[in-house]
Computed example of a mutant assay.
Amino acid sequence: MNQPVEHARAHAPAPSRIGQGTAVEQSRAAAEVQAAVVVAQQCPRNIQSAVAEMRESCKQMGLAERAFYRYPKGGQTITGASVHLARELARCWGNVQYGLTELRRDDEYGQSEMQAFAWDVQTNSRNSSTFIVPHRRDTRDGPKQVTDMRDIYELNTNQGSRRVRESIFAILPPWFVEEAKDICNQTLRNGGGKPLAQRVADAIKTFEGIGVTSDRIEARLERDSGKWTEHDVAQLIVIFKSIQRGEVTAEDEFPPQRVSVDEITGQAAAAEGGAA
């Protein structure tokens, strides 16, 4: 039984008194936790079934395409398994609760205190982390203060999803996670049964839709599209999904080709010669 409790509540600082609704919610939450433990003990997971479900799920392109992330940091590209894969593995493993909660918001200092957690209610294995999210966004012009309630909610959720991912992976068996990643990689390389030539054509068309031309992709992969491998196409899928999620930009992954002064001069001379 999985009970994702993923929410980052957007609210004002907590009042000193406890309202009736809050008291009812606290009682309900306590009863829910007790019930989850009882059900987990009465209906323990079947590991063989969990593995079979994980393998079937990771063979689906819909999951494989979202199973990995990438973003630039310190001049390098960081990659790994995404929160989408973590949530699906928690569902397959069963008897896992996970979530994200805003413990306190301090508008005076412009920050939120958050907690991310994952809990295997069957084995009582739990991982949690408490962290501070400043109400600021990094922009090209430097950090910018965030004051809009919805923007703060989205900022807290985005920052918290990474901790939720790590919490889930911390309580799942490493062999379970590694096999899932291997199958997802294999699914990306297989491309759902499509011929490689078709997948290459689809990848080029997809990137053209966001303004990335085939020559920029070829420069990134350091070979012509006719020589792309299954691994190349799989890598492009991960890059495209990361661009969609805002983890990287198209310019970071596919820098526009720079034109040298000699090339510009040569082109100008050729144009003048043709006009003459």
Results as ranks from 00 to 15, higher is better:
N2C: 10
P4S: 13
V5F: 09
E6D: 05
E6G: 00
E6N: 00
H7V: 10
R9L: 08
R17F: 07
G19L: 08
G21Y: 05
V24K: 12
Q26S: 07
Q26M: 09
R28Q: 11
A30Y: 01
E32T: 00
V33S: 08
Q34L: 10
A35V: 07
V38Q: 12
V39E: 03
A40M: 07
A40T: 03
Q42D: 03
R45C: 00
N46G: 01
I47S: 02
A50S: 13
A52F: 00
R55K: 12
S57T: 01
G62T: 10
E65F: 08
R66S: 07
R66E: 12
F68D: 11
F68R: 14
Y69A: 02
Y69Q: 04
P72W: 13
K73W: 15
T77N: 11
T79W: 08
T79L: 04
L85Y: 07
E88N: 05
A90D: 05
R91I: 06
L103E: 11
R104M: 04
D107C: 00
E108D: 01
M114I: 08
A116M: 14
A116L: 13
W119D: 13
V121E: 07
T123F: 10
N124D: 15
S129L: 03
F131N: 08
F131C: 12
I132D: 05
R136K: 08
R140V: 03
R140G: 10
D141E: 02
Q145G: 00
D148P: 02
D148C: 03
R150A: 13
D151V: 02
E154C: 08
L155A: 00
N158D: 06
N158L: 11
R162K: 12
R163C: 01
R163T: 04
R163Q: 08
L172M: 10
P173Y: 07
P174H: 00
W175C: 03
V177R: 09
E178G: 00
A180T: 12
K181Y: 09
G191F: 06
G193Y: 09
P195H: 13
P195Y: 11
V200P: 05
T206E: 13
T206I: 06
T206P: 02
F207K: 10
I210N: 05
S214Q: 15
D215E: 14
E218F: 10
R220N: 09
D224S: 10
S225R: 15
G226N: 12
K227W: 10
K227I: 01
H231A: 15
D232A: 15
I237E: 09
I239M: 14
F240S: 10
I243Q: 04
V248D: 11
V248K: 10
T249G: 02
T249N: 01
E253S: 06
F254I: 07
P256Q: 11
Q257M: 12
Q257G: 10
S260M: 09
D262C: 03
T265N: 02
G266R: 04
A271Y: 01
A276R: 05
A276T: 01
